[in-house]
Amino acid sequence: MYGGGNTFDPITDTKQATEDPQKLQEFEARIERGEKIEPSDWMPDLYRKQLIRMIEQHAHSEIIGALPEGTWITRAPGFKRKLALMAKVQDEVGHAQLLYAAAETLGKSREQMIDDLLEGKSKYSNIFNYPAFTWADACFISWLVDAGAIVNQLANSKGSYGPYCRALERICVEESFHLKYGHHCVIHLATGTDIQRKMMQEALNRWWEPMMHFFGPPDKVSVHTEVLMKWKVKMSSNDQCRNQFLDMYVPKILELGLTIPDPLLRKNPETEQWEYTEPDWEVFKKVINGDGPCNEERLAVRRVAEARGKWVRQALLKPKTEYVTPLA
């Protein structure tokens, strides 16, 4: 999990700074030839900015994404699930570590990135602004949200920035285990007792719309990203990713006897494209702009964790700082 350049806050600064035309030409030629750009190489300012923004948001998605699933570690039913879920969420936090390091190669420190997250200046994947009410919600996330993220991440791992691609390759290997774990959990619920089946169906009903939102607004209305595609910062369109996800997972969901809450969902045999009820994009906008069911809570938890850990970081950084004992 969890993100992978799909957080969709509007790109505010797409204007290209005046770049040296010859350097720009060489840069574009390298990308065209499929070469990777490395941290010490010349790169246009916009390329650097967009990559920082994208990798940083991906990293944030990993640590925020660890929250809804993390709360189920202490409640996971049985040893097998408990051990696997702990390992999985730990992987996600490890991905954040990898990704922050990749973004740092572009010149922004981890501390600055985390500050921007806490101040609401930097986004994370929208899907984590929804609550995981039951164990089945946690299973949905492990299987299908991770599946969606893999679709994005596999595409992005073919991008042009070396450190990000290498991080994504490692991440995708771990993700493939998460996917197996999540699928295994969902199979057990969907083929289990009446209570388990009901639990799973309800989770699917709750998460379907956020899952359709996950890949971002339809191409016809989404922000113009031509130059980012050309520079291989963004590798496939929102609709392409969504279509690929539906292709791969709709049959698997149906196979388990679950009902997808969209009567219009079908694959058009002529166009090979999926047709579906358009999810409510007003809701999407509302959530992304901070008014979702859990936006406040997620950031509040992160802020508390940061505040509680501040003395540890200070003790590591400035060993001789004087501390005045509080009176009360």
Binding site: I63, A66, L67, Q90, V93, G94, Y100, V312
Partner: peptide, 13 residues
Amino acid sequence: EWTGMGPILEEDI
């Protein structure tokens, strides 16, 4: 219970 709550990422892990 420290998962996601550590003072630094490395401690979380």
